[in-house]
Simulated scan of single mutants.
Amino acid sequence: MPIAMARHILVGTEAEALALKKRLAAGEAFDVLARRHSTCPSKKRGGDLGEVRPGQMVRAIDQIIFRKPLKVIHGPVKTQFGWHLVQVFYRD
């Protein structure tokens, strides 16, 4: 079964996610922004979701993790939890 490692930032609005994505593109550190702005418990780990397998995350996030290019900031993506920015480190 495939496995991947990813991190994300979860916020309440698309505008917040877009502003954070702009800051990431300008070179700000993902883990620092996740700790300051994310509403997910993973913020304590800088947004690190650890190793995940297909089906562990909501479908929209799962599709990014297992189908989109690596080491790119994807999003904002809306789920029932809010707006996500997602970065995938590796997939095996």
Rank of each mutant, 00 (worst) to 15 (best):
G27H: 08
G47A: 03
L70H: 00
K43Y: 11
V11P: 11
E14D: 09
D62I: 09
K71S: 13
Q87A: 02
K78F: 01
V88P: 01
R59C: 00
R23C: 14
F66V: 02
I61K: 02
A6F: 15
G27S: 09
P69Q: 03
C40P: 00
I64W: 11
G12H: 12
K78S: 06
R59Y: 09
M1T: 09
R67P: 04
A15Q: 15
D31F: 05
I65T: 04
F30L: 12
K43F: 12
H74Y: 05
I61E: 07
W83P: 00
E28Y: 04
M57T: 00
G46M: 10
L20S: 11
E16W: 06
L70C: 03
A19N: 05
K21I: 08
G50F: 07
M1Q: 05
G55P: 10
G46L: 08
P69A: 07
L33P: 10
Q56W: 12
T13W: 05
M1D: 10
K78T: 01
K21H: 10
R23I: 14
R91T: 07
A34V: 04
V72P: 01
E16K: 13
I9K: 05
G46T: 08
P69C: 07
I64R: 02
P54L: 10
A60W: 00
G50H: 08
R67W: 14
Q63D: 13
A34C: 03
R53W: 04
D62F: 09
G47V: 06
A26N: 12
T13S: 15
K44A: 15
K71V: 11
G27E: 10
K43E: 06
K21Y: 06
I73Y: 14
D62K: 08
Y90D: 01
A19H: 03
V86H: 03
G75M: 02
I9T: 03
I64Y: 10
G12S: 14
D92Q: 10
R45Q: 08
